[in-house]
């Protein structure tokens, strides 16, 4: 594994801190009831979205889950439009209609924001099928939790992608719990890469807290996929530091376990490495935090200033607007 150069490390460190602080700001805004509904935070898992998305091309697609703020931000969706979405405002990336769990940005090829566990996998397979049929070398990266691997949609998607040699990067974010259910309570085979390899695709496991390992794995996978080798499955081992959502009393894991995992904080892991290599001052994190906080505040101000949608347009976005062609009613009347 090659170390990244100083500039890349610095950039990715800043991005991880950005995602972290963004999520923590969201938690505050939830307490202040600016954000409502379900809110799932990505704190602890930042290295995965950061590392993978940095290696994707802008024209590659991403399909993610309800824990997708970090993926959207790293895929290039603006913090302003993500925050406005969570405020339910018209300038949100989904026009305010989706909220935290349904961030979409077609321009950045960010296809949600899916709140049905494993619901995004078949769609990712289809996006990749379109690339194959069109003869393009674009990849679809699909993120999901290890809990999703118990769903039929996971099995069916893995098989289809492998059967048809489709350019999908399956990114399993194994944070060890599906809500309150520990991996060993939901999977008969807990070696997830072993299971995935049973579908006839390259599959391996990597430390998802180590940003450089994430980047390295992503490069390897993307090279194989773009060369026409079909799908790849990577298990990123990680941990969510916070509750599943804002309603979770966390009765299913003990505090000691959380503390232990916090020692493997992906931000500190990279930061410490950079300090050791003389690439950043030992107190260098504070300045980064200050800088990203200022950017996040701009997003909050933007979101707060964005208007709510007029109730008159309640029933729109159901079918494609097509002002050119008259409605059937207009034709027949």
């Amino acid at each position: 594994m090659n170390d990244l150069d100083t500039t890349t490390r610095a950039e990715m460190l800043r991005d991880m801190v950005f995602v972290r602080r963004f999520e923590e700001r969201c938690a505050q805004l939830y307490q202040q009831t600016k954000i409502r509904g379900f809110l799932h935070l990505y704190v602890g898992e930042e290295a995965i979205a950061t590392g993978v998305c940095h290696r994707l091309r802008p024209d590659d697609a991403v399909v993610a889950t309800y824990r997708e703020h970090g993926h959207a931000l790293m895929k290039g969706v603006s913090a302003e439009s993500v925050m406005a979405e969570m405020f339910g405002r018209v300038d949100g990336c989904s026009g305010g209609r989706g909220g935290s769990m349904h961030l979409f940005d077609a321009e950045h090829r960010f296809y949600g924001g899916n709140a049905i566990v494993a619901g995004g996998l078949p769609v990712a397979v289809g996006l990749a099928l379109a690339e194959k049929l069109a003869g393009r070398d674009r990849v679809t990266a699909c993120f999901f939790g290890e809990g999703a691997m118990a769903e039929g949609e996971f099995h069916e998607s893995m098989n289809l992608a492998a059967l048809w040699d489709l350019p999908v990067l399956f990114c399993c974010e194994n944070n060890r719990y599906a809500m309150g259910t520990a991996l060993a309570r939901s999977e008969a085979q807990t070696d997830l890469a072993l299971r995935a390899s049973g579908y006839g695709m390259p599959a391996w496991s990597v430390d998802g807290m180590d940003l450089e390992a994430v980047v390295d794995s992503t490069e390897r996978a993307l090279t194989a996929i773009r060369a026409g080798g079909g799908p790849v499955f990577v298990e990123f081992q990680t941990y969510r530091f916070r509750a599943h959502s804002m309603y979770d009393p966390e009765l299913y894991r003990d505090k000691g376990e959380v503390t232990e995992w916090r020692e493997h904080d992906p931000i500190h892991m990279l930061f410490d490495r950079m300090v050791a290599d003389g690439q950043i001052e030992a107190d260098g994190l504070a300045a980064i935090e200050q800088e990203v906080d200022a950017r996040i505040e701009l997003a909050v101000v933007y979101a707060d200033a964005s208007p709510i949608e007029d109730i008159a347009t309640l029933e729109r976005h159901l079918y494609a607007p097509n002002p050119e062609s008259p409605t059937l009613q207009e034709v027949t009347s």
Partner: peptide, 9 residues
Amino acid sequence: IPLPYPRHL
């Protein structure tokens, strides 16, 4: 319509 996220809608 599928239910929208904003409270007023």
